[in-house]
Amino acid sequence: MNLLGLHHVSILTGKAERNYKFYTKILGMRLVKKTVNQDDTSSYHLFYADAEGNPGTEVTFFDIPNLGSSYRGTSDISTVSLRVPNTDSLLFWKERFKQAGVQHDEIEKRANRDTLAFKDFDGTRLILVADNGEEGVRPGVPWVREDIPTEHAIIGLGPVTLTVGIAEPTIGVLTEVMGFRYVGAYPSLEGDFPEILVYATGEGGSGAEVHIERRPDLPKARLGRGGVHHVAFRVPNEEEYNQWAQRLKDYRLPNSGKVERYYFKALYFREPNGILFELSTDKPGFATDEPMETMGQKLALPPFLEPQRKEIEEKLRPLNLN
């Protein structure tokens, strides 16, 4: 019973329209699902991914207008990575960011990979990471755009970084409960701090890693606009999903119990430092209720919300995505 890698990350945005333009027009990702936050149907939930909406390529956003800023600290998913094919891709993106006025750093080594850190317009801390032929979880399928060469397109999720004050409790859950393994460490780029620890699952590689940053000097983070709400990990099928539900129970980890999201099944729990983890099934996927060719073009509701469509649409603010 192994987790396959990263499934998705969910982030908070203060303005869905600007968010849409950044992730589709600048980053070239595909909007594969426009739906609602199932726990608060008065707000939108947008899913960006590769051309097919594959698990392991998804970055999702809860739209919360007028949301305050995030404040960096511990107990936080502090960075999210996106995979690109190679180092030449990073050079392409560095120039593209410059032309688009996107805040970015220089190309630097992280975990022995070439990377390029940048921020979206909500302040989310993001990193492009070059695959350069590395083995591990396979990449996604590029979404073809005329202004982004396919050989440089974003092809999935890379490592997430967890910033914690004390690492041992988080590492304990990753290794003892979730089956992650230690694969190395690399120097912090932010000063004289402990090395960042790297843990991997499944086939390993960029799409299956969690990085642990130890920062006892920081206060606890405050989640707001641009902050990462949770990270989800891939469960291959429903049989193993049921086994994971039992495993969390056996380890007496408080959790959500089984949650039906329609596009996948989910389990939520917080690791000891308070970071929200999700275990999500690969199937059935986003083409369940929409043709692959037109995913994301209309407001999609799972069957259990469809009878409320009229009331839900009346509560939602107009959303102009173009």
Rank of each mutant, 00 (worst) to 15 (best):
P302K: 09
D105I: 03
E106K: 15
I196S: 07
I26L: 13
L218E: 06
E271K: 09
A117V: 07
F92A: 11
L301I: 08
L197Y: 07
S69V: 14
R125I: 03
E306A: 14
V210A: 09
P303C: 11
L223D: 08
A117W: 12
L276Q: 10
Y251F: 15
L321G: 07
L126V: 05
S89K: 06
V177I: 14
K220G: 10
R270V: 03
Q297M: 12
A266G: 07
M29A: 07
D289V: 01
E278A: 13
E239M: 01
G274T: 05
V259G: 02
L305A: 05
E108H: 13
Y268E: 02
T41L: 06
D88F: 09
G133E: 07
A185N: 07
D76H: 04
G226L: 05
L90D: 01
M295W: 03
L189A: 15
E190W: 13
F180L: 12
R261G: 03
E58W: 01
M29N: 03
V228I: 12
T87H: 11
R138G: 07
T87N: 10
E290Y: 02
D147N: 13
L299H: 04
G136D: 09
E195I: 10
L4P: 00
E290S: 06
T161G: 02
R215K: 14
L316Y: 03
E290H: 08
L316D: 04
S10R: 02
T163K: 01
I127Q: 09
R270N: 12
A221S: 14
G73E: 05
E271R: 06
T201C: 12
G204L: 06
Q99E: 15
D40M: 08
G257P: 04
W244D: 00
G202E: 04
K249F: 00
G227V: 07
I11V: 13
R222D: 09
D114H: 11
G257D: 06
K249Y: 02
M295L: 13
Y263P: 02
Y241A: 00
I26N: 14
K283R: 14
E306Q: 15
D76I: 00
V235K: 02
V59D: 00
E106M: 14
A300T: 12
F264T: 06
M295Q: 05
D282K: 04
K310W: 08
V9D: 00
W244K: 00
D76R: 01
D88Y: 07
Y71L: 13
S81H: 05
R113Q: 15
A200K: 00
